[in-house]
């Protein structure tokens, strides 16, 4: 039985969803209110780290493993690059130009507005949350004694 006491486990189980929900809210409304991909991604990573601290590394590896978080981090970086390359699909437009804003007309102050800005926010949120979580999990699980018997 790894992890902390049953009180910490129960409370962590209760508030896990709220923290993830708050992080997703900050990411999704990054173009309307304060926040954005980086802040929301850090909050989501906080909830993952809380689960890892409360339940131990084996239970945390079932939800999001080291390899999986690293892969998601790479997919987030690729998504940002792809959204930047969208600018080349129209002639005479530079890298990272807001193509969706110029092709379609949006109602301002709605969630579906501002063209590709919410999509870039989502990609940055995915990248930051999984990237910080994988940095934490590699830092905390490192044991120098396991390297020596190689």
């Amino acid at each position: 039985m790894t992890g902390m006491t049953i009180i910490v486990k129960t409370v962590a189980e209760w508030i896990k969803g709220f923290i993830i929900f708050y992080g997703v809210y900050i990411v999704l409304l990054g173009h309307l209110s304060p926040g954005g991909g980086f802040a929301g991604g850090v909050i989501i990573a906080c909830s993952f780290i809380m689960m890892e601290l409360a339940f131990g590394k084996d239970q945390a590896a079932k939800e999001l493993s080291k390899h999986g978080s690293h892969l998601l981090d790479e997919y987030g970086a690729l998504a940002i690059l792809f959204l930047g390359l969208l600018g080349y699909f129209l002639p005479k437009l530079p890298f990272f130009s807001n193509v969706l804003m110029q092709k379609f007309s949006f109602i301002p102050f709605h969630i579906l507005s501002a063209g590709s800005i919410p999509l870039i926010n989502l990609a940055i949120g995915l990248k930051v949350s999984t990237g910080l979580y994988s940095v934490y999990i590699y830092l905390s699980h490192y044991d120098p004694r396991m390297q020596e018997d190689e």
């Binding site: 173009h31 954005g36 102050f109 507005s113 800005i117 926010n121």
Partner: peptide, 18 residues
């Protein structure tokens, strides 16, 4: 130009997205 009321996001993700 960007349709984003949050000017910080408009600058960070549109004007200075690079």
């Amino acid at each position: 130009q960007t349709g984003s009321p949050n000017i910080v996001t408009a600058i960070v993700l549109d004007f200075r997205a690079y």
